[in-house]
Amino acid sequence: MVSRRSFIKGAIAGGATVSAASYLFRNSGAALGQAPAPGAAERLLALNVNGQLRHVDVPKEETLALTLRNRLGLTGTKVGCQRAECGSCTVLIDAVPHYSCSVLTHSVRSRQIATIEGLASPTGALHPVQQAAIDQQGFQCGFCAPGFIMATVGFLKTNPSPTRDELAEGIAGNLCRCQDYDKILTAMMSAAEHARRS
């Protein structure tokens, strides 16, 4: 059976081949792409995502959220508003939470990017914040969850033992439209506790 998720991933893989082919095509001398202006950024770049170096061909105006989703197949990062107004696209850049919809991919070339896909250990053990979200049923539809979880992981690096109020303020840059915030906070507080113990 084709799930929605595997369908999306298939479509992205197809797209990746096309863009790789057109990249080769350009390099073969056909005057398709324009050469960058002198001193301007090159389209081809290497991104460090979840500890892996990924080579991608990215237009200058593309945001990190779209590169992650559409070129690297990392669809765990969600796009809600594309305006820095909802938080669902939150990822860590050098361990600090950012809205990936409002960051140019080209500006994070030499930085460490962490997405929800990179949280679990290679053996599949969930990150304490992920585990707490499940244990406490922190989310309902879950669309906002990757953003909340990344925001929490980032915040806990600066304040591992927050009060409930401090945590509420720390993850205030994320919106949820269907669960109740109190429940999310309870889950994320218990996440802080898990993280301290592990």
Binding site: P36, A37, G39, A40, A41, P59, K60, E61, E62, T63, Q82, L104, H106, S107
Partner: peptide, 12 residues
């Protein structure tokens, strides 16, 4: 609206 226009990017 809602999509980024193209531009040249310089990173001095």
């Amino acid at each position: 609206r809602g999509s980024m226009p193209s531009f040249e990017l310089f990173q001095p």
